[in-house]
Amino acid sequence: MPRDAAVLPAAAAPRPGLALPREAGWWLLLLPAFLLMTALYVAPILQVLAISFTEPTPGLGNYERLFTAAGVQRVIGTTLRICAVTTVVALVLGYALAYVIALASPRARRWWLLGVLLPLWISVLVRAFAWVTLLRRQGLVNEGLLAAGLIEEPLKLVWNEFGIVVGMVHYMVPYAVLPMLAAMREIDPRLLAAARGLGASRLTVFGRVFLPLSMPGLVAAGVLVFIVSLGFYITPAILGGGKTLMAAEWIKLQILDLVRWGMGAMLASVLVVTILATLAIFARVVDLRRLFGGGH
């Protein structure tokens, strides 16, 4: 008994060496990951930002080219146009897919999801070349259309913006499906039954109830697809055939081929700022935590 009495007060008293607040322990656990992120991710980005202001001469010279150089403007215009078209097409296809999956039986839903996610496991390089073989002059699509007598001569399906959009849409559809599917699964099916019971046709139920309720998912998917599209490199490089330049490929060209670090860093910084600005705007509209899998 006396021994117990001696131990208890010692255990209850705070140990002098570790008088940190309770939460400090948790933050210490996060520290390695934080340092890794800072060293490998944040620091290089800051360095890129710095280069864009210092190379070749200190000042805003690189950013001035945004407003004066037609080449830069053309690249930005092309990038925005291709990303916008990709986003719209991926959203339309993805919405239809998500709709079918959301209303499917649990068994069918698993197969549909597998079909949607399967492309994600195939290398983007393989997929880009697969599209080239399908879409080129002697590719399956052109040969098929020629054989069917639908066209007189091969269509230009690849090594242009059309080819890039096809490849990018193919890549982006799963990213469009998942946020929209999550939003659709949250819609109470009784609401759809209620709308029909109150006299709405299937089309009206979709337009007045389902579509508005799935809108957060649609917006989230749009933001996600657009942002990811902005940074596309391999797909446009292969399916564009070097003729259609998008931002990522142009940056690579500046830095690796022309050794104009300042210009490359400038456009990279513009991309990063554009993406952050887009996120900031839409964070006010939709719940981003839901988009990135948090929340609930």
Partner: peptide
């Protein structure tokens, strides 16, 4: 037919 659903099924939007 008018219908009151279980849990009411009011349109949240």
């Amino acid at each position: 037919f008018g219908m009151v659903f279980q849990g009411y099924a009011l349109f949240p939007h």
